[in-house]
Design a binder for these strands. Structure first.
Length: 316
DNA sequence: GAAATTTGACCTTT
DNA sequence: AAAGGTCAAATTTC
């Protein structure tokens, strides 16, 4: 298992960074409409836009810091040997999520097994708990929580915990390629600033030119041949409601900001069918089982491509 | 029969 | 004590 941790979370951070940049550009475009407003509204809108830009810049900085110190992730020892309920150390309330995203599809290239569902306070939708299906045979400790997005019910909030230590032969090559290539993209994006007239797409284009891929991260992934992965990533991050700040191990809520600026910009919400759960007692299962939709091979699923537990070390 | 989901109960954390 | 996370028996589907 010991691979040298290919940093998919870092890659996702790069994608998130692109989205932030797009959000910033959107805010800048909105500013052009200010003259069409009366003075009072224009002043208010100006303040709002300035606030949005400030927050986006802050989020961008946090992402940059996090991307450089990607060791600041938490991961409990997690041997878990999973016997009795007495085991307490693996309770995930003390765990830090390794990633979180808003997505229209629950498919992420991994096969998950649902082990629980809970009604959550302050949320109209239950939360479903999944663990990697390879937990039993390979001891994979990856987990995820899925909850329907309150603001956009066609999407899901998926929070990942731990990382995959399982090795699915069909996914490994793509994971490594994607992680490596996106790491380069990440470097390229470090050139981007939040200045008033940046041409971030130029930076992306330059990066893309040197790599022979398109300007956006999703296009980049598609060029790498991972069409499913690209589709998922673009879908997942277009709305970027949350941005992971790895340095603090917490999430920065940007949804109000980006949402206000970008709105529901061009997201294809191919919401999964509320299909009948394949098992159980016929009662309604909130998120349809991803397995019932078929296993997507070769997407970016692995969070950090296995066995690199150091990625999730708790920040002291 | 194997595998997966549902769901109530149990356990830990806050 | 409340809320959240996990377990495991029951149930269903393939």
């Amino acid at each position: 298992m010991a691979s040298s941790g290919s940093d998919v979370p870092v890659a996702w951070a790069a994608v998130a960074r692109n989205d932030l940049i797009e959000a910033r550009d959107g805010a800048a475009r909105l500013r052009n409409f200010l003259p069409q407003l009366d003075d009072q509204r224009a002043a208010w809108a100006q303040l709002e836009i300035d606030g949005v830009l400030t927050k986006l810049s802050s989020a961008m900085s946090a992402l940059d810091v996090g991307a450089r110190s990607d060791g600041a992730r938490s991961q409990q020892s997690g041997s878990s040997c999973g016997n009795k309920r007495k085991q307490s150390s693996s309770r995930s309330r003390s765990q830090r999520p390794s990633d979180k995203k808003i997505t229209a599809t629950l498919e992420d290239g991994h096969v998950w097994r649902k082990y629980g569902q809970k009604e959550i306070q302050d949320s109209p939708y239950p939360r479903s708990y999944y663990r990697c299906t390879h937990k039993s045979d390979q001891g994979c400790s990856a987990k995820r929580q899925v909850q329907r997005c309150e603001t956009d019910t066609s999407k899901y909030v998926v929070t990942y915990y731990g990382e995959h230590t399982c090795r699915d032969p069909s996914t490994i090559p793509l994971i490594d390629h994607a992680a490596g290539a996106l790491a380069e993209l990440d470097h390229a994006n470090n050139l981007i600033s939040f200045g008033p007239s940046s041409t971030n797409n130029d930076a992306n284009a330059a990066a893309a030119a040197s790599n022979g891929a398109g300007a956006s991260s999703s296009q980049y992934l598609q060029a790498m041949g991972g069409s499913a992965a690209a589709d998922q990533l673009s879908t997942s991050w277009c709305t970027s409601d949350d941005v992971f700040s790895s340095s603090a191990g917490s999430f920065m809520q940007v949804d109000e900001l980006i949402g206000a600026v970008v709105g529901s910009a061009g997201v294809t919400s191919a919401a999964p069918d509320r299909g009948v759960a394949s098992g159980g007692r016929g009662t309604v299962s909130f998120p349809p089982s991803p397995n019932s939709l078929g296993f997507v091979v070769g997407s970016l699923g692995s969070i950090g491509s296995g066995e690199d537990d150091d990625m999730f070390r708790l920040d002291p």
